[in-house]
Design a binder for these strands. Structure first.
Lengths: 164, 164
DNA sequence: TGCTAATATTGAGAAAGTCAATGATTTGTC
DNA sequence: GACAAATCATTGACTTTCTCAATATTAGCA
């Protein structure tokens, strides 16, 4: 995927020529110190990159996440998946429908509760996931290129503690 | 604001009663180790919380961010603001229109380029921002309550390095 | 048994993101 | 200095995503 805006294109194409002053000017603003701002930016750019790399598999990160859960061996119900991924139940059915139509996952009966349906990956789903994981690993590699391995672990650990 | 989904309500209301098994079951999944997943979750929940706390000012985090930039003293043009906040130019005009109608910011002529317009906060805008910052500080406090001050700085620093 | 709550699903409507076209203006080149 | 190409803000169309309420089925409970 090409840079999303002309402005991005400018900045991406010539790091040596700060875009009419560059954005370093804003890095000291109060906003730029807020963790909320930093996480928003990180997720926005990480998402865009991952979507680009997943495009040749006809996947985006949202369906990829659902597939990953179905491949995890944890047998989540749709509602468990929904709360884990912060998705509305109606979004879950849309995503599951798509992946099921594609033959990547299956809805199975929950033996403990006939209202709920459990998600499992098919053979093809596991293969698709294997392909997709390579892409997302590459995306993470690029996203975190400025950090050492130890720092990456540290970041993971800190983020885990604030979201769980 | 009440919890956004019935599932959230369940989890939020009784941390002692893990929702039919709880989500700890999924915390060891591959997905939960991905920084992309963690940042998405962090930004999603942080955003929701901040929006809740800003609601009484009739603000959301997006317009708040624009206001913050206008109050920063850096006099950004609309396009600079757009690339800093990862917003499409058309989204910028909508946000700026709204805040200008509200009397919080003004578009001023750019002496160096008559095509571009510079954003500055009005008196009322600065007052609104002062109110809003209290809310977002509180949101950050709640979001990061599990981290020590040193760890919060560390998180900020690591995130800064991956997004700038 | 009957009452309340939870699950998946549908569908409507609002919000957010994407993209192309345009007028005014600037920049680069001859 | 003139001309072509690029940039900025803006508009409008369009798609995707989010949010909510309503519903049928099933569980759990008194």
């Amino acid at each position: 995927m090409p840079p999303s805006t002309p402005a991005d294109a400018v900045r991406a194409s010539s790091p040596t020529k700060p875009t009419a002053g560059g954005e370093e000017r804003f890095q000291r603003s109060d906003l730029a110190q807020e963790v909320a701002f930093l996480t928003a930016r990180a997720r926005g750019r990480g998402n865009a990159l991952a979507n680009r790399l997943l495009a040749d598999l006809d996947l985006k990160v949202r369906p990829f996440s659902v597939l990953a859960m179905a491949c995890s061996g944890t047998n989540p119900s749709q509602r468990e998946l929904g709360s884990f991924l912060d998705l509305d139940p109606s979004q879950v059915v849309a995503l599951v429908d798509m992946l099921e139509t594609r033959g990547a996952i299956r809805r199975e009966a929950d033996p403990r509760d006939r209202r709920s349906k459990i998600l499992v990956a098919t053979e093809a789903g596991h293969e698709l996931y294997a392909q997709a994981v390579q892409r997302t690993r590459e995306a993470e590699e690029q996203t975190l290129h400025a950090l050492s391995p130890a720092e990456r672990d540290q970041l993971r650990e800190l983020l885990s503690r604030i979201v769980f």
